[in-house]
Simulated scan of single mutants.
Amino acid sequence: MTTRDTIANGLSRRDLLKLTAAAAVMLASRNAIAADFHRFQHGTFDITVVSDGFLTLPAEILLPDATLEERQAIMPRLGGNAATAPVQANIPLIRHGEDLILIDTGSGSHFQASAGKLAANLKSLGIAPEAITKVVFTHAHPDHSGATTTIDGKVLYPNAQYFVSEAEWAFWTDKDYATHMPSALHDFARGAQRDLFAVKDRLTLVRPDQEIIPGMRIQQTRGHTPGHVSIELAGDGGLLITGDACTNDVIFFENPAWHFGFDTEPEVALRTRQMLLDRAATDKLKMLGYHWSYPGVGYAERKDASYRFVSA
């Protein structure tokens, strides 16, 4: 089942918003993760994983390929129930020399009320929005770029340079998106245009293998969106900030042949995910996953024909 099929058959972004309220009581304790800050050094980079809160996603999105029995076994392991489960939003704050860099901006007020906590958590760390010098987008879905502006439309990080891949810009800023994209993607396109156009005058379009700063390189991980990228940091064997190239550290490590319901190019995303996990296991590459269990830092270890996540 593709993303387009999943949403077209009755599950809209509006439906997802409603799911948040239904799951709020069950998941309230998980929001405490926003107070945790995992900090580590990687080569010349000082990294703090700052929580943006969590999202609530339905089984139809998380496990479109799973049988009913498989869903019933996996969903509780994610901290959810038979219908929905929480997924964290882990945002790397990277200090390098005079730069203070965010990888994605989180949801702001544009997705689910349980997310959008990044700005408050940065404040608790003593970091004002004006201190951020660079923002690198893995892609322009609302839970990754929705906090580009405040609720009144002002740019949240006014002194930052912004970076997005050429392919991501070209896909989402198509002025004829209503004709060229299925209706299931129209809300996403409007959100991406809102976020990207807000910083157009300070936005740099990048290509795969291009460096943002020395040692921070763009890696193409197309599929979740046509211009999705991951960010690789040099040193200590390498660190790949995966974005949504591999969306869950339980589901897709253990079931690398399964699809994810929000992948725009499902088969491309599947191949990308499999290549990423194969490389990570072979090279013992450290990874940081956006929607993985906080703080989302660890390794892929082979287990028979699949993998298991090993926390760092």
Rank of each mutant, 00 (worst) to 15 (best):
F45C: 07
F45M: 08
F45A: 08
F45Y: 06
D46R: 01
D46Y: 04
D46Q: 04
D46F: 06
D46E: 12
I47C: 11
I47Y: 03
T48Q: 01
T48D: 05
V49T: 09
V49K: 00
V49P: 02
V49R: 00
V50R: 00
V50H: 02
V50E: 03
V50G: 08
V50F: 09
V50C: 11
V50I: 13
V50M: 09
V50T: 04
S51Q: 02
S51N: 01
S51W: 02
S51H: 03
D52E: 01
G53N: 01
G53C: 06
G53V: 07
G53F: 05
F54A: 08
F54D: 02
L55C: 13
L55E: 07
L55Y: 04
T56F: 11
T56R: 00
T56N: 06
T56E: 04
T56V: 15
L57Y: 07
L57W: 04
L57C: 12
L57V: 14
L57G: 10
P58E: 03
A59R: 02
E60G: 11
E60Y: 02
E60D: 14
E60V: 14
E60R: 02
I61N: 07
I61A: 15
I61T: 13
I61Y: 08
L62M: 15
L62S: 11
L63S: 13
P64V: 10
P64G: 10
P64S: 12
P64D: 09
P64N: 06
P64F: 09
D65M: 10
A66R: 01
A66N: 04
T67P: 06
T67F: 14
T67A: 14
T67Q: 05
L68V: 15
L68H: 13
L68P: 06
E69H: 10
E70L: 13
E70S: 12
E70Y: 07
R71K: 12
R71D: 11
Q72G: 08
Q72W: 03
A73H: 10
A73Q: 10
A73W: 04
I74P: 06
I74M: 15
M75Y: 14
M75D: 10
